[in-house]
Design a binder for these strands. Structure first.
Length: 500
RNA sequence: GACCCCCUAGCUCAGCUGGUUAGAGCAUCUCACUUUUAAUGAGAGGGUCGAGGGUUCGAGUCCCUCGGGGGUCACCA
């Protein structure tokens, strides 16, 4: 393996440490008494503290040095004086270990007391220094000048995504994004658990990939000698649990779809699905408004978030627009009363690319996607989807051509999808049969029939409303990111080839 | 899958219509320095220019193939 000059020197330092009787990778627990942020907030002088973290910058001035120590909460300045850490005549710890053998990126533990430097910087006067772990590779070294401008930042997306561990160490805003992601998920979980709903786990390996229309990843179980799929959705399993008598169930579901990748699609992604018995989609809209306001509050301390130069306002209520009105407004087409041929003519009229495999539902969806979607920047519920495009959703109580469905759009992107769930087993069977017809017509995304799910519905499912929230996309909206890769710790990449 | 762009030191980047020994800043190494904070001053080392082939007297630069990444589009109801 080819090593750079810097790596070779660090490996040499490692050996020298061992010769001095210092274990560069000690096994013992190291008990830090504070975190960097604890010391910075409400700074107190003369406090005895023990800190642990990575040595990040060093400014050596002969017999005294300044350094910064970075832990999970931030950085804190260290002041290291030769004669204070080496009280006897033996100055090896300072002159050799600290100045020569330690490098940027090494983990150390320090003990001492807090004080203010003459320039007023909160600092730790180090009395004792312990090597906790030696780093062999040099970290990138971004620097921030007086004007807050970052120089030499570690920015190459390929390197950042492949080596997220390095990205997280040197780019503090990256760590903040993932802390925000965790708060989003925690806020949802807290809200649901307070309402008494049950968090459940349902199969990732499924014999029939149901609940959505997408190409699945296929795998094989040896002992059963059967083909299995990684789930594209968990919807049908959560509904089975509602049949079983749970009245509120939810799951943060990692789904897998064997489709293209772009800035809003990764082959594996997370959808939070929630089903609540005796509710309808109107109730769910109100519930979602409150949930997202809470989540935004948890992340930002207010119900607004900045995204690509616009302020997104998450405070309820959100606009509610029917799909018919949306298409009427932006495409000037009234889908009400148009049959498939009429729709096809209208699409052609607008210069859209369409083909014969597209049914009525798909044509309407194209109209909406092409002309309307991008206009909904502030959170907006698009409601009452045509029945042809929603095979798991109950027909609208006032008009059977539509369904009791909404999608929530933010910044022109679909963030949530909800129904008054179809619980009529006869109707559901017919809808599945219509999907089979679409599949035979050439639609390779039509849904599979799940006989066991139909059997479950035949045992009776209470009226239920369900929702799926695209967690990754919601995190994007809340953290101002425009690429899904920035909200996934390890986005999908082509496998890296290593020389052995 | 299609098109466009990118790949040069540990990091961020220069490198013109092809020209002699491939540069800078930071990082690294040596020396100096007991309150610095993009520390400072003096000196030094570090490169298979993504890989392979071709054109040429001569290729980081031009051409071809391959690999990786980014963007746009398609696909993803």
């Amino acid at each position: 393996m080819q090593r750079s000059e810097q790596e070779r020197l660090r490996i040499e330092s490692l050996a020298q440490m061992r010769e001095l009787g210092i274990d560069p990778y000690p096994a013992a627990e190291f008990k830090a008494t504070y975190k960097a942020a604890d010391l910075t907030e409400g700074f107190e002088e003369g406090l005895q503290v023990v800190l642990a973290g990575r040595l990040m910058t060093r400014r050596i001035m002969g017999k005294a040095s300044f350094a910064s120590l970075q832990d999970s909460t931030g950085t804190f300045q260290l002041y290291i004086n030769r004669d204070e850490i080496c009280e006897s005549e033996d100055k090896v710890l300072y002159n050799t270990v600290f100045k020569k053998l330690l490098d940027r990126g090494d983990f150390i533990g320090v003990e001492g007391e807090t004080f203010l430097t003459k320039t007023g910087e909160p600092s730790l006067r180090v009395r004792k220094l312990t090597v906790l772990s030696k780093a062999i590779r040099p970290l990138p070294s971004p620097k921030t000048d007086d004007d807050g401008v970052v120089h030499d930042a570690f920015t190459d997306p390929e390197l950042r995504y492949r080596m997220r561990y390095v990205d997280l160490v040197v780019n503090p805003e990256v760590r903040k994004t993932f802390e925000a992601r965790s708060r989003v998920i925690q806020a949802m979980r807290d809200t649901f658990s307070e309402k008494g709903w049950l968090e459940v786990d349902t199969p990732v390996l499924q014999a029939i990939p149901g609940g959505a229309a997408a190409r699945p990843f296929i795998t094989h179980h040896n002992a059963l000698d059967s083909q299995l799929y990684l789930r594209i959705a968990n919807e049908l399993y959560l509904k089975r649990l509602i049949v079983g008598g749970f009245e509120g169930v939810y799951e943060f579901s990692r789904n897998f779809r064997n489709e293209g990748m772009d800035r809003t699609h990764n082959p594996e992604f997370t959808i939070m699905e929630l089903y609540v018995a005796y509710k309808d989609y109107r109730w769910m809209m109100t519930e979602m408004e409150q949930l997202l306001a809470n989540v935004c509050q948890a992340v930002h301390g207010e119900t607004r978030a900045e995204l690509a130069g616009t302020t997104i306002n998450f405070a309820p209520p959100y606009a509610r627009v029917t799909m018919r009105d949306a298409i009427l407004e932006y495409a000037k087409v009234d889908i009400d009363g148009l049959d498939e041929d009429g729709l096809r003519a209208a699409c052609k009229n607008l210069g859209m690319e369409i083909d014969d495999s597209m049914g009525k539902g798909k044509l309407i969806d194209e109209l909406f996607g092409e002309h309307c979607e991008r206009h909904y920047v502030q959170p907006t519920f698009i409601t009452d989807y045509p029945i042809e495009m929603s095979p798991l959703c109950k027909a609208h109580r006032d008009n059977p051509r539509y369904t009791e469905r909404f999608e929530l759009f933010i910044a022109g992107t679909e963030v949530a999808n909800a129904y008054s769930e179809l619980n009529d087993p006869i109707d559901q069977r017919e809808r599945f049969e219509a999907q089979v017809a679409l599949m035979e017509r050439g639609d390779d995304e039509a849904m599979f029939v799940d006989q066991d799910f139909l059997r479950a519905l035949e045992y009776g499912m209470p009226p239920t409303s369900g929702v799926g929230i695209g967690v990754d996309r919601l995190v994007m909206m809340l953290t101002g990111q425009t690429s899904i890769q920035e909200v996934l710790l390890f986005p999908q990449m082509r496998p890296e080839i290593f020389e052995s």
